[in-house]
């Protein structure tokens, strides 16, 4: 492993362990599991649907992530700025890119742990019937990618403030706009007056429409590209913002 990745990994490692140093991690994991299965069984009418799939489970993820991803990512930079440790970080022999990427991956891998812990529901559905496991696997990957996009957005916005609560609110609102962009109600309102390409652009920006395709088992290049470029773009802005906001 060369030095560049080694240092990124040290940042990643400290940040990931940081989640488990406080009760935050266990609380988050509990809330995620309780909410995701609660929504699946009660709101999603898992049993009444009488179908062996996890549509009812994944359908709630965009809405769940809207709250949970800002909760995971809000401290990434806001806390560094509040406590002054950003000065320590930046005077270490590392680049801002290494810092931003290391921190982002810590939060993303933490989310992966949460998703892995939800797998008993996958086992349950296999026990109850014969689901299409390919679709479920793709949905898991898609869900993790979407979580990554939410987290990159949150990480980026958490650089703007020293206050974690403000970082949380900013990220939730921005996430909400990105999810809602693909909502039928919004789209039909726009469609009534705007040319088709505007409607399509808005739809293509939406987390919801991309995620819906994944849920149906359609995992094409454009969806992958969308989430990955969303992550890359947010992290790129994040790197610039660290440079600009470090001294405020």
């Amino acid at each position: 492993m060369n030095t560049y990745f080694k240092k990124t990994f040290i940042i990643f490692d400290r940040e990931l362990k940081g989640y488990f140093r406080t009760p935050l991690a266990s609380i988050f994991l509990l809330v995620f599991l309780a909410l995701s299965s609660g929504m699946t069984f009660f709101l999603g009418r898992f049993f009444e649907r009488d179908q062996a799939d996890l549509t009812a489970f994944f359908a709630w993820h965009p809405w769940l992530f809207l709250i949970l991803m800002p909760a995971i990512g809000m401290r990434l930079w806001a806390e560094e700025r509040r406590s002054g440790t950003i000065e320590l970080l930046i005077t270490l022999p590392v680049t801002n890119t290494q810092l931003v990427v290391g921190k982002f991956f810590a939060s993303w891998i933490f989310t992966l742990i949460a998703l892995i812990l939800s797998m008993p529901i996958w086992i349950t559905v296999n026990y109850l019937g014969n689901p299409d496991n390919n679709v479920i696997f793709i949905s898991y990957i898609g869900s993790w990618l979407m979580a990554g996009a939410f987290l990159a957005l949150t990480s980026c916005l958490s650089t703007l403030t020293k206050n974690q609560v403000i970082a949380f609110i900013l990220s939730s609102i921005s996430g909400f706009i990105l999810v809602m962009a693909g909502f039928g109600l919004v789209l039909s309102a726009v469609r009534s007056w705007a040319p088709i390409w505007i409607t399509e652009t808005i739809r293509s920006m939406s987390f919801l429409s991309h995620f819906n395709r994944i849920q149906m088992g359609v995992f094409d290049f454009s969806t992958l590209l969308f989430f990955v470029s969303m992550i890359v773009l947010c992290l790129w802005i994040n790197i610039q913002l660290v440079q600009i906001k470090k001294t405020d």
């Binding site: 040290i10 406080t22 005077t91 270490l92």
Partner: peptide, 29 residues
Amino acid sequence: KEFIGYLPEGAPAYSDMEVSDFLSFVGKM
């Protein structure tokens, strides 16, 4: 930067880390 050791004003540190973990983090970095 490798040649410099720096104590910023107010001695900021990761308050949730143990002293040994914190120092070994900085050492590795």
